[in-house]
Design a protein around this nucleic acid. Structure first.
Lengths: 232, 232
DNA sequence: GTGTGTGAAGTGTTTCACAGCT
DNA sequence: AGCTGTGAAACACTTCACACAC
């Protein structure tokens, strides 16, 4: 903090775990930095400059430095960042020291794909339950989990101490499930259902929508075709 | 256009299909409006005000009107928007009149889930091929598609006139596949691989990253817990 | 009267460029 | 000398609020 305004007043951090209210765009990039740092560490690099890190994360170095400065001063001028220290710091900020217990609702193709996704088990996420409504699926073993009956959703969520829910169900039933999940205290939901969902204050909902992604690609492809009408 | 600046100069639209360079954020919402319009039309509504439409799409009405104004004047003051006309207009703008031929690369859990996803077949997207490298999967029938050998990727992409690729493969092989896909002229790629990917100018790449989504949820949950330390 | 379309203001994010620490 | 951390400028996006068309 090289500049003091008026009477010296250190910025009153409540400790190294501070950093309130990170911008949404920064959060997305922090996860990328974390991945890049993991790769660099596996490659044996103890230090990296903002330039190197930015390259590995696929962003420019100015925004990387700006993002990291929001977490506090964790680099060394003239040298760079220590990969281990920085990775630890980002992990802390993102709340990944906490253990997150994820339940997946919907054991169709997508739900099964998610339950087997390796990225979950890393970094403090563990899948603790998988639900479905279909008698054909209930009781079956999927990636080491027994598919539970969604009729018992509330009991199982409570018993497993679930604190994150992933919805991989058809649109029409999604809102009802959101309501049930919220009622037993889950406050973080990731939905793959292509519908608008309402959640009360204090509950975070994120959506992934495959149709939206394709439609945006279509737009850009069409634009490119306008500029250069060649390959369809 | 109620206001002319200086000598009358109509905004030189090249026709109703114009609307260059829509902001990324607007594109995302346009897909939501399109879905909302489809629902409204199915419910028999021929007209809707920005208020009603915004509610159905889960956004506020001011931004909806601003977004739609970028496509031209398609509403009627004092009345609202005609659902059919507007849906048609958005469909046009997004490039969904074109037929998009999608190949899915990777027939693991996720690739299979994607190939069966109903949202693809609607709105001009058709899945024309599904690839894998594993002898256990090649030749098997998945949702009416025979899994093709990724060794023949180039030939099959060309033969099927693929113009969009979806990557559902492990991180380490993703960049190589991007390069191959780009080399045969595909310019729109959606990747589920959790790695930074490089594409040349003129190719659009979008990424969906499950680990990132969960990590962002974790951050918000942690923030909420700081404010109100109660349920884990 | 009603509800769109849009300037203007407000807010958020990125880039620039360089002072200052190592 | 080199690289971080950060004000300041530029850019992007959202919200406000109201003139105007119907």
């Amino acid at each position: 903090m090289p500049r003091s305004k008026g009477p010296a007043q250190p910025p009153a951090e409540t400790g190294p775990a501070a950093a309130r209210h990170l911008p949404e765009a920064t959060l997305v990039r922090l996860t990328q930095y974390l991945r890049a740092l993991t790769e660099l560490r596996e490659a044996g690099r103890a230090r990296a400059s903002s330039e190197v890190l930015a390259e590995a994360a696929g962003v420019n170095s100015a925004i990387l430095r700006k993002d990291l400065s929001l977490l506090g001063s964790y680099g060394t001028r003239g040298v760079g960042y220590e990969t281990e220290v920085l990775a630890q710091r980002i992990t802390e900020c993102l709340g990944l020291t906490h253990e997150w217990r994820v339940s997946i609702i919907g054991a169709g193709n997508l739900g099964r794909a998610l339950s087997g996704y390796g990225g979950f088990r890393n970094r403090g996420f563990s899948v603790v339950a998988l639900f479905d409504a279909s008698p054909d699926l209930i009781g079956r073993d999927v990636n080491g989990l027994r598919v539970a009956n969604v009729a018992f959703l509330e009991d199982v969520l409570t018993f497993t101490r679930t604190n994150m829910a992933v919805l991989a169900v058809p649109g029409p039933v999604a809102q009802g499930l959101v309501d049930r999940v919220v009622r037993v205290g889950v406050r973080s939901i990731l939905s793959f259902a292509p519908v608008v969902l309402q959640v009360p204050e204090g509950v975070t909902l994120r959506k992934v929508d495959l149709a939206t992604e394709l439609q945006i690609l279509a737009y850009h492809a069409q634009q490119a075709a306008h500029a250069d009408p060649e390959r369809s």
